[in-house]
Design a protein around this nucleic acid. Structure first.
Lengths: 231, 231
DNA sequence: CGTACTTTTGATCACCGTCAATAAATGTGG
DNA sequence: CCACATTTATTGACGGTGATCAAAAGTACG
């Protein structure tokens, strides 16, 4: 079923930089799991039983209100970490947006391993700090940007995130990509309704900033203009 | 000028749980600094030169757009940690909302100390994970809640945060407190304009949910109703 | 007491949400 | 492979919430 030695994300995930014997130990306590698109891995508020690393696929982290309003609070890509170590409850739901493959650990096992391996904790700390920065930048979008600015910002962001999936360059941006999101999910990321998202897509296409060859594919025709519209 | 041994937040800040000799070392690399209300400690985008712990006072973390729109992305209270360890640039501005006292460290010194003291890194990791959870919960507010729900949620939150300042109980909530925020700053936290904030305050007062004895003081008259309005 | 700042209140408007209908894409069974 | 059902996205009409602009009231401070 695969091991850490052959893992495709071993150089980018938190496991990177561990000694071979440490990797072997981590291999023992983790196991691989496949998720179908739409399958839920963790539920908001449940006790925190497991953590995981993404091997491939895209997942969403979301918070909801009782009346059904939902906000996606994070998107998770290959090599990203999922879950809440050292905590009692999972603070958000986790659901696969595409078919995905993850490397899961019982939270207890992972916590113990982490405490004994400062190198791993350090990696996790750096990752968490980066994620906090990203999340706070997103708050500016949610609190202060218009619908057009939100969609433009979002398209620029995923054009970067989707790029490494196709080629091996760590940083880059592709002018043409498939979104792993439905319109509803784009709305849930941006704090907008599906109708507003659709109208903004149409407007940008009409203005020649982007092209929409199919439902979920986007072509950036004028990146400068898109950046200008991102606010 | 004060030392770690006599520090009022020593049992709650990241220093908690360190051995006496470790505390002494930390004492050597840090220094105290007083900030006047409105004084800026860090600027968004500048190189990350220092980190700090709050001893007393309240500070804001904020992101801005070129055109002046601002979003407060975090509020920092006594014993909280400020700054971006292990990073090149400070991702947000930090400004004192009240007169404040902080314990500052050169980022280099702090990073080195942290790497050599896993106990400290672990504390920092737990703190960062908790902060990330709190931040993500706030995204639901910014993305999906109405103005009334936002203000109600905010008042409930600060009634909790302000409580420990007056008494020694770690967890609690006071029905009467002074806000360290102007109306503009409340707006910057909630992603609303000052006028909308003011109108919502007036409405809640008119409805008997809260009372506003003075500019910055709030009395919660009907906590149940306030919770109902928080969504 | 006068000046400057903050907050409140009012009037108006625009953006985005809501509700509804249509269109397009996807899936299913004969 | 096509008819049909279902899901997803687009488009339209309309209304409400919150932003904007403007003025008045309240507060702080010399």
């Amino acid at each position: 079923m695969g091991s850490c030695q052959t893992c495709v994300v071993r150089n980018r995930a938190i496991c990177a930089g561990l000694e071979p014997d440490e990797v072997a130990l981590l291999n023992d306590i983790g196991r691989r799991r496949n998720l179908a698109a739409g399958e839920q891995l963790l539920w908001e508020g449940e006790s925190a039983v497991l953590v995981a690393n993404v091997i491939h696929g895209v997942l969403k982290l979301s918070n909801s209100l009782e009346d059904g309003r939902e906000q996606i609070v994070g998107l998770v890509y290959p090599s990203d970490f999922i879950g809440r170590p050292f905590g009692a409850t999972t603070p958000y739901g986790v659901e696969a947006l595409t078919d995905a493959r993850v490397c899961v650990f019982a939270q207890r096992d992972f916590d113990n391993f982490a405490r004994e391996h400062p190198r791993l904790e350090h990696k996790l700390l750096e990752r968490t700090l980066t994620e906090l920065d990203r999340t706070r930048k997103w708050m500016l979008l949610l609190g202060r940007k218009s619908a057009e600015e939100r969609l433009a910002t979002f398209l620029l962001e995923i054009s970067q995130r989707m790029a490494p999936a196709t080629c091996d360059t760590p940083e880059g941006q592709s002018e043409e990509f498939e979104m792993p999101f439905s319109r509803q999910q784009v709305g849930d990321v941006l704090g907008l309704t599906i109708e507003t998202v659709s109208r903004q897509f149409t407007k940008m296409k009409r203005d020649g900033v982007i092209d929409l060859p199919s439902r979920r594919s986007v072509v950036i025709r004028d990146r400068m203009e898109l950046e200008a519209r991102a606010g």
